[in-house]
Structures are given as structure tokens and as C-alpha cells.
Simulated assay, not measured.
Amino acid sequence: MRFSFLPLVSIFLLAGGCAQLPQSSLAGDPEWVEIPEPPPQRTNGAIFQPEAGYRPLFEDYRPRMSGDLLTVVFNEQVSASKSAEVNSDREGGATFTADTVPIGLEELAEYGLELSGSNNFEGGGGAEARNTFTGTLTVTVMEVLPNRNLRVRGEKQIRINQGTEFIRFSGIVDPREIDGANSVLSTQVAEARIEYVGDGYINEAQNMGWLQRLLLNLSPF
């Protein structure tokens, strides 16, 4: 009887490929804003050339058009806790004694019936989570919504030795929340998506191996 190792190898390769499933980006895929090129500058010898991208000297430089930049200040501090406790007690009892019995069964009157029982249950649980994220990231205005709100997105990549850290952010900003330093707090951004992930051997060391993941999924316990 010949035994083929091909099906077994195929199962292990399939399990290895499914061990670390790729996760989609929380902030969405990278986007680019297409800014139309200005018309060619006229060589008329004048200093004032509006075709070269004129902006008034005393104009408010807060972002209001697609392609403008905005600095997001991260100050995320989230804390949550939950606790629960349950106590339950129950007791019961029953007694039976025969006062009158038929003739010939008088001896049964000496035997009585007595039942008792009790039930006790105690349970408790608790959970606590704390997250802190601080820093800054400059994002780009991707779209100006009909109500003048700004849809922004930004990304920063930092390579350290053999690993790369990715910081991504997206959300909707109300222009009235932008301060004079052209920045806005992340807590004032609607639909905020903050992502801080990395790749490399350090990140791979934090993932479960494919064989261990396979055994964990097949284990009935």
C-alpha cells in the first residue's frame, strides 16, 4: 500500500498561509489629491502674477481646499472598567410523618420521611482597559464636504533597523475647531480612525505560529 504525502503537505501549506491573515487598514488605503497645474505664467514683466498661485497676504491660512495640510495633535486617553458580582442561595426541606396507618402496618408509623437540600452559587468578574496615544501627524485635506467640513487623511512611516512603523489617521474635521497654529485635537475629529502598526521580525514574534493556530482551532477544549 503506497501512501502519498502530497495531501498532507498541501494541508500544512494551506494552514501556513492562513496562519497570519492580512488585515485591512483601519484608516483606509492611501489616497492622492490631484491638484490642477496653474496656467503658464505670462512674461509681461509685472511683479504681480496671479497665475503663479496668488494668495492674499492677510488671508487666513487655515485649510479650506483639497490638498491643504493640517496638523493633528493626538491626545487619546481612554479608560474603561467593568465589574460584576452574583450571589445566589437556596434551601429547601420536607418532612413526612404518618399519624394513622392501616391495621397490620403499625410498624410503618415508626418510619418517617425527611428531605432537605441546599444550593449555593457565587460568581464574579471584572475587566479593565487603558489606552494612551500622544503625538502629532500632518494630514492632507482629501475632500471638502458640502457643509464645508474637511475629510482628511495622513500617513507616516518610520523605519527602525529591520522594522517599519506605520501611523495612519483619517477623519472629518470641522474648520471652526482648527486653531491659529493650523492644528486640531484628535478628540475633536469625527469618524476618527487611528492606526499604529508595524512589520518586521519584532512584529512577527508577537504572532502565533501557524501550527499552534491550527491546533487551537481544531482543539475541542
Rank of each mutant, 00 (worst) to 15 (best):
N161T: 14
N149V: 03
A181Y: 10
E143M: 04
A181R: 13
G117T: 00
A127G: 03
T138H: 10
P175K: 04
G180E: 09
T138K: 15
L145H: 05
G163V: 10
R168F: 05
L137F: 02
G124W: 04
F166H: 08
F133I: 05
N120T: 07
G163L: 04
L137Y: 07
G125L: 09
I158G: 03
D179G: 13
V152I: 14
G180L: 06
A181N: 13
N120L: 08
G126C: 10
G117D: 03
R130D: 11
S170F: 06
V139E: 11
E155H: 08
E128S: 10
L137C: 04
E122Y: 03
G124Q: 07
I178A: 03
N120P: 00
V152L: 11
G163M: 07
I158Q: 07
S118M: 06
N161L: 12
G163N: 09
A190H: 12
A129L: 07
V144C: 01
A127I: 02
S183R: 13
E177V: 06
E155L: 08
S170A: 14
A127M: 04
I178H: 10
G124F: 04
P146F: 03
R176P: 00
I160C: 13
I158R: 08
T138I: 13
E165N: 07
D174P: 05
T134N: 14
E122H: 09
T138R: 12
Q188E: 13
T164K: 12
Q157V: 00
E165V: 09
I167P: 02
T134G: 11
Q188S: 15
V189Q: 11
L137S: 09
R153C: 02
G163S: 15
